[in-house]
Design a protein around this nucleic acid. Sequence first.
RNA 1: GGUGACGUGGCCGAGUGGCUAGGCAAGGGUCUGCAAAACCCUGUACGGCGGUUCGAAUCCGCCCGUCACCUCCA
Length: 503
Amino acid sequence: MPVLAATFRIFNTRTRQVEPVDPVTPGKLRFYSCGPTVYSYAHIGNFRSFLSADLIYRTARAAGLDVSYVTNVTDVGHLTLDDLSDPAGEDRMVKALNSKEGEQFANIWDLARYYTKVLIEDWKSLNLLEPTVRPRATDHIREQISAVQQLLESGHAYETDKGIYFDVSKFAAYGELSGNTDAVELAPTERNIVTDDQKRDSRDFALWKKDSAHLMQWYSPWGWGFPGWHIECSVMSMSYLGEEIDIHAGGEDLIFPHHECEIAQSESLTGKTFARHWVHTRFLQVEGQKMSKRAGNFYTVRDLISPQEEGGRGIDPLAVRMTLMSGHYRKPFNFTFETLKANIRHRQRFEEAMAQVQLAQKQALAGPDELGKPLARLRERAFGAMLDDLNTPEALAAAIEGVKLILSVGKTINASSSASASDWLKTINRLLGIVSAEYEEIKRSEASDFGKKVELLIEERKQARSSRDFTRADAIRDSLSAMGIALMDTPEGVVWKRLSNLD
RNA sequence: GGUGACGUGGCCGAGUGGCUAGGCAAGGGUCUGCAAAACCCUGUACGGCGGUUCGAAUCCGCCCGUCACCUCCA
């Protein structure tokens, strides 16, 4: 399908301009994306940035690159301020464990396992492709310790009574990524509660925290403790992708300090460019406001997609995906229920287009291919938009035009047009992931017991209608509606769908 | 205080020197036991003020406004 020589261009935070992706090894892309700390259900903001990574993966693949895609799970609870010991000894994971929600877990490890499992479920629901490798920080403690040792030996780090710190004065380029280069400017905003007087510079950050009381601790040359937050990504990136990678991605908040610190550590270790391209996704807002629990506009993926009978809103996960794609990853994005509603409609169009294609295959009408050429143009437009710094709004516009084009042909679509439509839907799905679920287990769960119950009532209504008992037919429609089901009478039979609570 | 974004029609959102993106919502129509869906038709906007130009939403300057990061956050 794609042009082999297609150039993928994407914004590089380090140089502040859109640059072609230029792999270390031609034809191969080494790609690392920072994953979440698993202390709670992931929210739509988390997923906006994972989705950017997914789209980088899909676009690079479509451009003919052989992609190694690594995204981690951070299952170590790091301190809330990474260079000091919290007097309460609490981190996000410990806090989660001590909260009401946390009562269901036997211990901190159990909590991490649970939220990792849930993360991957949501991941699949939103049609995010599985990475090549999904490493966990706790599986790489040994490498982290070894990296810290090397940094100590090479003089890039020093030890105090409380931990090991990276010595920022030994890395001239510190601050280049974020623009936070001025130590004097950093100092005043720096932690007013710093408790380690032995730190040499306020910018220095922890590589290892000595702490024999922490819930998660490992033995090291410096006694019991746990690794600093930044070192895990350096180590996991290098373990799976090598010392120099092509793209490193994450949320905008990670630019500083996380990625700045990763660069300092990694490049001090290897003397090589850690990552050629840095890609960051901006935070989203909800209804024009910062998403926060206090503002009451905080949404996890679960809140939106789980069925209404399970307390969720029953929204089509792919509509959530489309909504998150409807803004450019590098611009502030306003997540609204109005946009979500619009995307629920778009998704229904994709469903209908697929039903139309299936019908056409049964009918096998003769006729010329009316869709091949215009759809090919729209496919190129969508692909071109993605290659151009992941222009998802433009790509989505082309995709929506395409479905509308397919639907406008109507039920009398002939076999050759429908073959073109079918190819196009598959290609668009591979590129954008918005047409249909790509995981078998998700497809299967759609055919549940609940579904059988609905089918039974529909059959009953069908009989009522054929005997022109419309009162009875409407009563069944109403009771289904109460179950959260909407019916659509079509010439080919009755189609049902789950209503979201936005309908 | 430092760093960096962004301001497009009722709303969301492309475009980035000349050629009405697209979507949602709205109004009208076709179809239909009802209800949807689908399809067709209608709708010319770029924060303000200067400047460059034959021509600016698009380039330059200033101003106003909004937001993010610098502190746990995707």
